[in-house]
Computed example of a mutant assay.
Amino acid sequence: MASYASPAAGLPAQMTLHTGRAVFTEAYALIPHGVMRDIVTSRLPHWRDSRAWIIARPMSGFAETFSQYIVEVAPGGGSERPEQNPEAEGVLFVVAGQVALTIGGEPHMLGEGGYAFLPAGSHWTLTNRATAPARFHWVRKRYEMVEGIDSPPAFVTNEQDEPIRWMPDTDERWGTTSFVDPADLRHDMHVNIVTLEPGAVIPFEETHVMEHGLYVLEGKAVYRLNRDWVEVEPGDFMWLRAFCPQACYAGPERFRYLLYKDVNRHARLPF
């Protein structure tokens, strides 16, 4: 059964050592789970009994295509007007509890591992009808229309129902759970789950145009970010701008992370 990290919340004890791993550089940011505390949460318009850790947002000169939140919804909380931007598409991925989601009036229940794609302009609502808080990732991107290509439809699934597609020549040690067909040009972003078995590696420094958000769901690894090798563990978030080199050595347990990347579109040109 899969396990999913989420923020620790609360506050550390007053005698806790201040030394930590948080860093923001010209090419990447590392936000460790230990700094995702109550004091850094945000409230969102038209959301009741809810709060969000905003762990990525578009920033000029850094990563510019997406925002990523971890949203916590108390029992009875939620929103009938969750998204105010009609051009924003979204992905929800549930890491704790369960939520009642409606898309265009059609109801869905999403438990842990639940995944929903929300097209730009879709009408959706979300409530927590359970007795325990629910937590989910919410990745948002402005959808880039292309003449002659239809917009993708909404869908709901669970990662347990989706196969891991193993990379060739890796003996099924490094793979991706892809929730949409990579060749489907209707989609301009992918939010997938990457799995590395114990001791597996990404054996080269990936250097590419896609921006990344990587949230560690479980396991430990040493990750290459630009010039640095950093240790990461469950609940850590890595935020990479385009062309930031990256590689990975997985630790002694299965290492998994939720991965955002922008895809399938021309590079935007200035006007």
Rank of each mutant, 00 (worst) to 15 (best):
K220N: 11
M1R: 10
Y69S: 12
I70W: 06
Q68R: 12
D184P: 10
E231Y: 02
H18A: 14
L11I: 04
L240M: 09
I70G: 04
S60D: 14
L259C: 05
V230A: 07
F255N: 00
T16Y: 06
H33P: 00
Y143V: 00
P203L: 02
Q160V: 09
E253H: 04
I193T: 15
N158W: 06
T207I: 02
M167A: 15
M189C: 10
F93C: 04
V263M: 10
A221Q: 05
E162H: 02
V194G: 00
T195K: 06
V209D: 06
G235C: 00
A9Y: 02
M36S: 12
L11D: 04
T19A: 14
E83Y: 01
H187F: 15
E231N: 06
P168G: 08
T195A: 08
P198D: 10
T195P: 01
M109L: 14
E106Y: 03
W53A: 07
K261I: 05
P12K: 07
G105R: 08
L185R: 14
V222C: 07
Y249E: 08
I103A: 06
L92A: 10
M15W: 11
S67E: 08
T177N: 11
A27G: 12
F255S: 01
V263W: 12
V94W: 05
F255C: 00
L101F: 13
L110N: 04
T177M: 13
P198R: 12
V156D: 03
P119M: 08
L217Y: 04
P163L: 01
E253C: 03
P252G: 02
R268E: 09
R48Q: 13
G78D: 10
E159K: 11
T16S: 15
V91W: 08
M145S: 10
E197Q: 15
V180R: 12
R254N: 01
F24M: 11
R140P: 00
D38L: 10
P270L: 09
Y28C: 08
P198K: 10
G97S: 11
I149H: 12
H108G: 02
A134D: 05
L118R: 01
P270K: 07
P245Q: 02
Y223A: 09
P168I: 09
S151V: 14
Q84M: 14
I202M: 10
H18V: 09
V146E: 15
V180K: 07
V222A: 09
S122Q: 03
L225I: 01
E206M: 12
R57L: 15
M109W: 05
H46L: 13
I39V: 12
H108P: 01
F243P: 05
F243K: 04
A200H: 08
S6T: 08
R43F: 09
G175N: 01
I193C: 13
V180I: 10
S151P: 10
N226T: 01
I193D: 11
I54M: 06
G78C: 11
T177S: 08
S122P: 01
N85R: 12
E172W: 04
W239G: 00
R81S: 10
W124S: 03
P198N: 10
W166I: 01
W124T: 02
T170H: 00
Q98E: 15
G113F: 04
M109N: 09
P133I: 07
D184N: 13
E106W: 05
E147A: 13
H33Q: 13
Y115H: 09
L30F: 12
I149L: 15
L217S: 06
W166F: 03
M36H: 13
E162V: 15
G10H: 07
P32A: 11
P168E: 06
G90E: 15
